[in-house]
Amino acid sequence: MPIKRLVVFRFHRDPLVCRTRVDLIRRLNPGVPVHGLFGGPGGARGAAFRLAGRRVLGLDALYVSRHSGPWNWKNGDLVLLDWYRETGHRLSFDVLHFIEWDLLLTEPLERAYAGVPAGAVGLTVPTPLSVIGDDWRWIAGQDEAREWRELLAFARTRYGYGCDDGYDPVPHGCLGDGPCFPRAFLDDYAAADPPALGNDELRYPLFAQLLGYQVVDTGFRRAWHCPADDPYFNAFGDRNIERATIAAELAKPHGRRAFHPVRTPLRGLHSFPVRRSAGGG
């Protein structure tokens, strides 16, 4: 049977960009529901998004986080679990795709995630922390390093992480752009009730290990330290991917189909040779 997919679209700004991104997701994946998760600021700006977000963006439903914008940015997985406990568990799906507003996928989900089995957790460049290096922001600062140690202590106490003779777990980090999760993982992750220690890019791979799920790379970026990939897919700066770069890749039969960050509407994207899905699976 085809995999039943669902998109949770996470956003906090730039409604025009978000609208074009949701439109493209729907065009490429007919029949796949797209639910919104707003994690932006409060005040008048946040209220405007909350009031108009579902209608303006063309979403099936809209969930608004109760937390602050900075907390949501750091803890995307915990916001997703809030949504899942309150709303998502009632929906019918096999695999959930957690899509950031500035992630551009130009082929159907079934093709973009073709390398990720339905029962696996798909993460972007899951990489041992020893390879990432100790200058990564989530383990480099004093507070960040303390939180990481506390998170590891939680894993040891609750799950015996690293306590078994002959078992030496390798902690990983990942990029939080475009993960996908089987429904069973979300059930188990919600039940585990992870603490707000570290950030989602540390917790995703750690809890996949703790809960016994296979982790598979999405393939959106070739390696953590790969400067040649930065013009197409990066999360290490504020470099917006250029329209000309995207168009050149889409013109290649085997060019790249995932780009990040893309923070412009790209209104003419319908003229690019993107490939549609034949159905909702």
Rank of each mutant, 00 (worst) to 15 (best):
L105M: 11
R243E: 14
P273H: 03
P227H: 09
A114I: 09
F49W: 07
P227A: 10
R13S: 14
I3E: 15
F38D: 00
G119K: 00
R221D: 05
V121K: 01
F98K: 12
D60M: 09
Y159I: 07
W83Q: 05
R5S: 12
D188K: 01
H89P: 02
Y159N: 04
P231Q: 02
R55E: 12
N75L: 05
G69Y: 15
L59Q: 09
D187C: 00
V216R: 06
S130V: 13
H225A: 13
A61Y: 11
Y232C: 01
F236C: 10
T127Y: 08
Q209H: 13
T264P: 00
R13M: 04
E144F: 05
G173S: 06
E249D: 05
P179V: 05
R256D: 01
V170D: 08
L6V: 12
G46A: 05
R256Y: 02
A184H: 06
V32M: 05
D217E: 03
F98S: 03
G198V: 01
E86Q: 12
I99L: 15
V131L: 09
D143M: 14
P70H: 10
V216E: 08
A208V: 02
A192M: 02
Y204N: 05
G173W: 01
P126C: 06
D238N: 15
V8D: 06
Y63I: 02
R149F: 10
C174S: 10
D102Y: 01
G115C: 12
F185Q: 05
H35F: 11
L266N: 11
A47D: 10
D77Q: 13
G141I: 00
L206K: 06
L91Y: 11
C174G: 02
A118C: 08
R156Y: 11
R21W: 08
T106M: 13
V95N: 04
D193K: 15
D188C: 02
V22Q: 11
V274M: 14
L91R: 15
K74C: 09
L197S: 04
F259Q: 00
L37I: 03
W71V: 04
R256C: 00
L250Q: 04
P205C: 01
R267F: 15
P171G: 07
R13N: 14
V17Q: 12
L6Q: 12
A258G: 07
R221Q: 09
C174H: 04
F220I: 00
F236Q: 10
V64N: 03
C174M: 07
V7S: 06
D193G: 11
G133D: 12
L210F: 09
G36W: 07
L78V: 04
G36I: 05
S277N: 03
